[in-house]
Amino acid sequence: MTGFLVEALSWALILAGAFFTIVGALGLMRMPELFTRMHAASITDTLGATLLILGMMLQAGASLVALKLLFILLLFFATGPVVTHALAQSALHARVEPELAEDRRARAAEPPGDGRQP
């Protein structure tokens, strides 16, 4: 019974991970410019990878394989933000500016409670 439950859970996790992986790549294609594309790519990096690896860990059971998968996941989580941040910094440095619907930077500088007017 537990064997069946574990099997079903790992099926669900792997299928969900595959879905989010494709969604991330689709977003990479559909988004209009660099900064919005980075948001889409981070779905693949975080949720897609996590679900796939958790599913595979359930298949592997308690073994060295599962620990290695965990290391790969931790590596993703440690390096993902570093790469994204470096990419954003280099892009801004090269004057690739994001297209904005709204820039709240000036508003954030004001003290709170000042923004009563619409």
Binding site: I53, I72, F76, A94
Partner: peptide, 26 residues
Amino acid sequence: PTVFDRVLAANSVGTLAILLLAVFGF
């Protein structure tokens, strides 16, 4: 179109390749 889009895509390709390697192992 910019080099940064390509770097972002290359990084995604790397992530996907790692996942594919793990899945292929299983």
